[in-house]
Computed example of a mutant assay.
Amino acid sequence: MSDRPVAFVTGAARRVGAAIARALHAAGYDLALHCRNSRADLDALVAELEGVRGGSTLALQAELGDADALPGLVEAALARFGRIDALVNNASAFYPTPVGTATPAQWDELFAANARAPFFLAQAAAPHLRAARGAILNMADVYAERPLPQHTLYCMAKAALVMLTRSLAQELGPEVRVNAIAPGNVLWSTNEVKVETAELLAARTALARQGSPDDIAAAALYLLRDARYTTGVVLPVDGGRLLHI
């Protein structure tokens, strides 16, 4: 069994997921890191982290829409490290579904990635998180509370993830804390509905600037490690964007 705390991070290969992985690793966590398609990026991240501390990572590749595969991911992390102290449900699916064109397949895909997989991973990990008095962190969205035009299914799925956060906090307490982060603009978007100029971003954000994946990673470390009396919370890390939406 690892002498260090162990975190399982989904969608860890790039962007916010990779920033969270680096922050947790620097804080002393061993990591089970998941990707869907970005295996080359994940392998590069693993090589980077292994160069810092050997034997500290496990790479896992899976389609989270395959519910039958989810318990096996938790089992693989346990087989490698012998414990799980934190589950970070970071992986997500995001694309527009304008009313009138949305399909049941899109419903299934968006809910599978954003709500179903986080629940069944949490269910599989819960006994081990209880034993470790650990924590779950879900990656929500400001649009779980404020609808984004043409993205009804995505917003609904993230709203389900927010309720999952609150319900699990109640059901898994007192041993397991469960929180979420609702990121604001931390990466420039190519989505034509969301895309903003620097001027628009400054006007719509109280801190008048874009954030970064490192801002999300710092909040993730706080909620997983340091916020010992915080559970059932959705923490906006958005520079004050919710004040202007």
Rank of each mutant, 00 (worst) to 15 (best):
Y29A: 12
R83Y: 10
A77N: 01
A91E: 05
A102D: 12
T190E: 15
R14G: 02
L224K: 09
I181P: 01
G239N: 07
R14T: 15
L110S: 02
E192I: 11
L121P: 00
T57W: 00
P118A: 00
L87P: 08
R80L: 11
R14Q: 14
T101M: 08
L110P: 00
V88G: 04
T57G: 00
A117M: 05
N90Y: 05
M156G: 14
A77V: 15
A93D: 13
E145N: 07
N114Y: 09
G211V: 09
E171Y: 02
A182D: 01
G173R: 07
V178C: 12
P213T: 12
P96T: 03
G211N: 04
D215G: 02
H34Q: 13
D226Q: 14
A86Q: 02
I245Q: 12
A208C: 13
G11D: 05
T10Q: 07
D108K: 14
A206I: 11
L49T: 08
L235F: 11
L78R: 14
R83M: 10
K158A: 03
G55T: 06
N37I: 07
A126P: 03
G134M: 10
I136A: 09
A113P: 03
K158I: 07
R177C: 03
M163E: 13
L187H: 12
R22Q: 13
P71G: 10
V88F: 01
E192F: 04
A125K: 01
L24C: 00
L78P: 13
Y229C: 06
Q61E: 15
G211H: 03
A218M: 00
H25T: 01
A7V: 05
N179L: 09
E175K: 14
A26K: 13
G240E: 04
L137D: 00
L224Y: 09
S92Y: 05
G211A: 09
P98D: 07
L168D: 02
L224E: 01
P127Q: 10
L201W: 04
P104M: 11
A27R: 15
A113K: 03
G51T: 10
T231P: 04
S189N: 06
P118M: 04
E171A: 14
A26W: 05
A125C: 11
N89G: 07
G232C: 13
A124K: 05
T205R: 01
G11M: 04
A77L: 07
E175S: 15
I245E: 11
D66Q: 14
V193Y: 10
R36F: 14
T165C: 10
S2G: 07
R22W: 08
L164S: 09
W107Q: 00
A91T: 05
N37K: 14
R39S: 14
D30V: 00
V234M: 04
V52Q: 14
H151N: 13
Q210C: 11
E145T: 10
R204N: 15
A102P: 02
T230R: 00
L49M: 13
G134P: 03
M156A: 15
A44I: 06
L207I: 14
S38H: 11
